[in-house]
Amino acid sequence: MDAKQFKEIRQSKYMTQAEFGALLGLAQSTVQHIEAGRNVISDRTRARLAQVVDIEELISFSRQIEELGSIFPIKS
Rank of each mutant, 00 (worst) to 15 (best):
D2Q: 08
D2W: 05
D2V: 06
D2F: 07
A3T: 04
A3S: 15
K4V: 14
K4P: 00
F6E: 01
F6K: 02
K7A: 09
K7T: 03
K7D: 06
E8M: 10
E8H: 05
K13C: 08
K13W: 02
Q17Y: 06
A18G: 09
E19F: 05
E19M: 09
L23H: 03
G25Q: 04
A27G: 13
Q28H: 08
Q28L: 05
S29R: 11
T30S: 14
Q32W: 10
Q32E: 12
H33W: 09
E35V: 02
G37T: 06
R38Q: 13
N39K: 12
V40F: 15
S42Y: 10
R44H: 14
T45L: 04
R46G: 12
R46H: 09
R48I: 09
R48K: 15
A50G: 06
Q51F: 07
Q51L: 13
V52G: 02
V52E: 10
V53I: 13
I55Q: 14
E56D: 14
E57R: 06
E57V: 11
I59G: 02
I59D: 11
S60C: 11
S60Q: 13
F61Q: 01
S62L: 09
R63T: 10
I65D: 06
I65Q: 09
I65K: 04
E66C: 00
E66H: 03
L68R: 08
S70I: 05
S70L: 09
F72M: 08
F72Y: 13
P73T: 04
P73S: 00
I74K: 11
K75D: 13
